[in-house]
Design a protein around this nucleic acid. Structure first.
Length: 151
DNA sequence: GCCAACGTTGGC
DNA sequence: GCCAACGTTGGC
C-alpha cells in the first residue's frame, strides 16, 4: 500500500507543466532536514500531491509518483551549484532526494483557501506548518483533494 | 514587496 | 547548550 505526500515547488522554478513535459525529474535542492527525512521514508509507488507555492493562488495542481527511492543529491557535491554544501562529502552525504514521475495535472487546481475551508483537511501539515516543503499526507486527505480537483 | 514564522549558525 | 543574529519560506 502506497504512502502519500505533498511536495511544494514554485512554478517559476519548476512547475507541474515542466514535470508533465519532462515526464520525470530529480527532486534536487531540498536543504531542510525534516523535508529530507520525509524523502528518505518514501517508497517506489508512493503518490505525491504537487503543490505550487508563491503563486496566486497557491494550489495543489497535480499528482506525481515516486519512481526512485532516496539517493544522495548530486548538487551538494557540485561547487558550481547553488545547492553546493561544503560540509557534505561523497562518503557522508547530507542531502538526499527521490525521483518522481508525472501522473496527472488536475483539471481544476485546488487552491489553498479551499483546502483551508474544508474541515476534513484541517489536520493537513500544509494548513498547520506552511513552511515544510515535503510533507506527509493521509490517504483520506489525498483522496479528498483529488476529488475537489474534479475531472 | 512585506514581513511573520521558522530553521540554522555560531559565539559565548 | 543557550540564544541572538541571520537567512529563507511562502502567504498575503
Amino acid at each position: 500500500m502506497p504512502s502519500y505526500w505533498l511536495m511544494k515547488s514554485e512554478p517559476e522554478t519548476y512547475s507541474i507543466q515542466d514535470l508533465e513535459r519532462d515526464g520525470r525529474t530529480m527532486w534536487d535542492g531540498v536543504r531542510n532536514y525534516q523535508a529530507r527525512n520525509n524523502m528518505r521514508k518514501m517508497k517506489e509507488g508512493d503518490l505525491v500531491l504537487y503543490y505550487h507555492s508563491r503563486q496566486d493562488p497557491p494550489a495543489a495542481v497535480g499528482q506525481a509518483k515516486v519512481v526512485r527511492e532516496a539517493y544522495p543529491d548530486p548538487t551538494q557535491f557540485d561547487e558550481k551549484s547553488r545547492y553546493f554544501d561544503a560540509k557534505a562529502s561523497e562518503e557522508d552525504p547530507r542531502w538526499w532526494l527521490v525521483d518522481i514521475e508525472w501522473v496527472e495535472t488536475f483539471p481544476s487546481p485546488v487552491a489553498l483557501s479551499d483546502i483551508k475551508s474544508e474541515s476534513a483537511l484541517g489536520d493537513m501539515v500544509l494548513v498547520n506548518n506552511s513552511r515544510l516543503s515535503v510533507q506527509p499526507v493521509k490517504k483520506a486527505e489525498f483522496d479528498r483533494v483529488r476529488t475537489m480537483a474534479g475531472g
